[in-house]
Design a protein around this nucleic acid. Structure first.
Length: 751
DNA sequence: GAGCACTGC
């Protein structure tokens, strides 16, 4: 392909001599802590590289058994760096497991960690993947007696991590999972209230627990793991834990992360300046956070940068993969691109290129990886590559944190990912391709060093990495719609949302917008307090507040069974299988299509699924995602239980779809749109802000264009597309939200 | 007639 050669030619022609630079520095520590590694130096040795890359720095990850630099920097930031003294040896039943435990890097810090937790309210532990912090620290705490009469909690951002870590710890302790060691995730509580002493849980579950027990009084130590990811729920949790600490000085917090800005996190938990006479300090408990750094266990990853910025990262990706395959020893390749579109194209281009070049096609298996794939397709990437073959996985961010692939030796990093951004003025969340942060780049590179030393090819220049890439991404909190977060805080009795102490404050526009939406839903009153009962009921449901409101309205309208089904379907990613050739999918959709719109279509799919006896074959035949439907069933059951607890009547409207549409209107009235009169291209305008929007072609109402519709969400590409659309009668709007629409020109006769 | 990074309750 001529286009691919362009990249090679261009670079080759400009590279006359290439240098190798060697430097030894630790990428696993935040810059603020590395200041003491004086040995860091860069000396260049002249080598001609046959690649088109310049090896600018060797990212040296610490290996077990090597001495690490020690430093003490307690001048300002409160960084305590303890020397690694061997812990006293203990003997436990499981010899081989015990040996393994002692070989983990974190073991050398056992005494230091216990000392810090004993003497400090908050301990920040920085440790790379493989340091063993997640599995070992809860055990150390238990061995030291922190579980006597209390529970040790360890939170994770993801369900899978909770399950696997809990299983591992139970195994190491030689106990049955669910007894002394347990875990809780949504839909699964594998704990025993009498026996469980170490409990793993998602941070979202811990937030929910706070609704019943605001001070989290059954926990003695709470370890918040992967805090560097700065997810929405982690940040809310950190803000709330800081508040709890003031009421419960004896509670110990451990904030664990890979590449956190340790000092800024420490500054967040720094309370001394504001309250010089904290109760805890009288008892020798330091309220100033301690920071401890633990080395990881990855192998060296050599970082290579492009000499010149690439104009087309897709082409650059293809030629880089081909070059690795032709020139480098065996080992699988992991490529980070942005989304399904790019990935499918890259898979195709690489496959073609390999076939054209003849010999190299023999040894390559090229596989896509993104969440929209079916389970079977995702499993392909986990099967070991056949002898003599090189596996090339082209992935989204899913391989950065959520999934770990073994056998990766080479990483190709495009430097981009899709990120969500929220505009509080237009109230629209956009998904845009944006440059990643240094922290992400390091995380991606680290994926190459899991089994042996690897290489990471960055499709951007070193100068760009050093001077332009931001060190950490923007926390999710500052990129999201905050309605769900605000209602959670309200439910926990946080009245002053605008004054809440966040690890990273969201814009006041976002918060004001969230308050407005909640007010219009009747969830907050004039004093911005939760209304009773609607506000409390909405807060209790683990859903977007607009969906929760829809459920509550369905009680009066007598269609709660149907609305709960619709809610469950709206809260899973997509019930349709994503296929490249969409013809068949469109045909399949037609079988379920309802004139009223997508919500009713969903109901038809659900009914069909039940009639098929929840058959996976039936799903396959109808282009429906079986795993998504199973999740729908689970979510639906949970919602029914909560609805009953809230005193809502579970009732079916049978075939009266008008009440169902009214219930949807009660939750989503703010998303009402009117077809522009005389519009020939299906243009709608939102009632609230006269924004130009169109029905998404995936909707059953595409080209049907009813005069009045309500959408569930907007997707913006070159146009604003409404997804999941239902037709309504405009008179229902004022009925559902009189205050919201009192000044809006709703006269349908104007059409 | 177009496209949905990834989590989580």
């Amino acid at each position: 392909m001529a286009t691919i050669h362009w990249f090679k030619r261009c670079v080759v022609s400009e590279v006359t001599q290439v240098f190798f630079f060697f430097g030894c520095y630790q990428t696993c520590l935040p810059e603020s802590i590395i200041i003491g590694t004086k040995s860091f130096s860069r000396h260049s040795s002249l080598t001609v590289d046959r690649q088109y890359f310049r090896s600018a720095a060797m990212a040296q990850f610490w290996k077990p058994g090597t001495e690490k630099p020690r430093l003490l920097d307690d001048e300002e930031g409160g960084v305590l760096f303890y020397s690694a003294s061997p812990s006293s040896s203990h003997t436990y039943g499981y010899a081989s497991l015990e040996k393994q435990r002692q070989r983990l890097p974190v073991f050398k810090y056992r005494t230091s960690i216990l000392y810090l937790v004993e003497t400090h309210s908050t301990t920040i532990i920085v440790g790379e993947t493989g340091s063993g912090k997640t599995t070992q620290i809860p055990q150390y705490l238990k061995e030291a007696g922190w579980a006597d009469g209390h529970i040790i909690a360890c939170t994770q951002p993801r369900r899978l991590a909770v399950q696997s870590v809990a299983a591992r710890v139970a195994e190491e302790m030689g106990v049955k999972l669910g007894e002394e060691v347990g875990y809780t995730i949504r839909f699964e509580d594998v704990t025993n209230s009498d026996l469980t002493r170490i409990k793993f849980l998602t941070d979202g579950v811990l937030l929910r627990e706070m609704m019943d027990d605001p001070l989290l009084s059954k926990y003695s130590v709470i370890m918040v793991d992967e805090a560097h990811e700065r997810s929405l729920s982690t940040d809310i949790l950190l803000g709330l834990l800081k508040k709890i600490q003031r009421r419960r000085p004896e509670l110990r917090l451990i904030i664990a992360s890979a590449t956190i800005e340790a000092k800024s996190m420490a500054a967040f938990f720094q309370t001394r300046k504001r309250r010089p006479q904290l109760e805890g300090e009288d008892r020798g408990l330091q309220t100033e956070p301690a920071i401890l750094s633990v080395e990881g266990r990855g192998y060296n990853v050599q970082i290579l940068y492009v000499e010149e910025p690439v104009s087309d990262y897709l082409r650059a990706t293809v030629s880089t993969v081909m070059s690795i395959h032709d020139n480098e020893p065996m080992g699988d390749i992991l490529v980070f691109l942005t989304g399904q579109d790019d990935i499918d194209t890259a898979v195709q281009l690489i496959t073609e290129e390999a076939q054209n070049s003849g010999k190299s096609s023999l040894g390559m298996i090229v596989l896509p990886l993104y969440s929209g794939l079916t389970r079977a397709d995702q499993d392909l990437v986990f099967s070991p590559s056949p002898r003599g073959k090189r596996k090339v996985v082209i992935s989204t961010n899913i391989a950065e944190t959520s999934l770990t692939l073994e056998g990766i030796v080479y990483v190709v990093d495009s430097g981009f990912s899709k990120q969500r951004f929220y505009n509080p003025i237009t109230d629209i969340e956009n998904l845009v391709v944006a440059p990643i942060s240094k922290a992400s780049a390091r995380q991606r590179a680290g994926r190459a060093g899991r089994i042996r030393p690897g290489k990471c090819y960055r499709l951007y220049t070193e100068d760009y990495f050093v001077n332009e890439m931001s060190s950490h991404g923007i926390p999710e909190m500052q990129r999201s719609n905050l309605v769900s977060s605000v209602i959670q805080l309200k439910a926990l009795g946080i009245d002053n949302i605008l004054g809440f102490d966040w690890p990273a404050s969201p814009s006041s526009e976002s918060m004001v917008r969230a308050l407005e939406v909640l007010y219009s839903l009747g969830v907050l009153d004039d004093d911005a307090k939760l209304t009773s009962p609607v506000g409390f009921q909405v807060a209790e449901l683990p859903l977007d507040p607009m969906i929760s409101k829809m459920i509550i309205a369905s009680d009066q309208l007598g269609c709660s069974e149907e609305i709960i089904t619709v809610s469950a379907i709206l809260s899973v990613q997509s019930i349709w299988i994503s296929v490249k050739g969409q013809r068949e999918l469109d045909g399949a959709k037609l079988r379920f299509a309802a004139a009223e719109g997508d919500h009713v279509t969903f109901l038809n799919v659900y009914k069909g699924f039940l009639q098929s006896n929840k058959s996976s074959k039936w799903c396959h035949k109808n282009f429906i995602n079986y795993h998504a439907m199973k999740k729908v069933i689970e979510v639906r059951e949970q919602l029914r239980r909560i609805a009953q607890r809230l005193g809502l009547a579970l009732k079916s409207c049978e075939n009266d779809m008008q009440v169902l549409r009214k219930a949807v209107t009660a939750g989503f009235f703010a998303n009402a749109c009117r077809l522009e009169p005389y519009s020939h291209n299906g243009m709608y305008k939102t009632i609230r802000s006269s924004q130009e929007v169109y029905i998404h072609p995936s909707s059953v109402l595409f080209r049907v264009n009813p005069k009045w519709v309500i959408y569930n969400s907007l997707v913006s590409t070159d146009r604003q597309y409404m997804r999941n659309v239902i037709s309504i009668d405009p008179s229902w709007l004022r009925e559902a939200a009189p205050h919201f629409y009192q000044q809006q020109p709703l006269n349908a006769n104007r059409l």
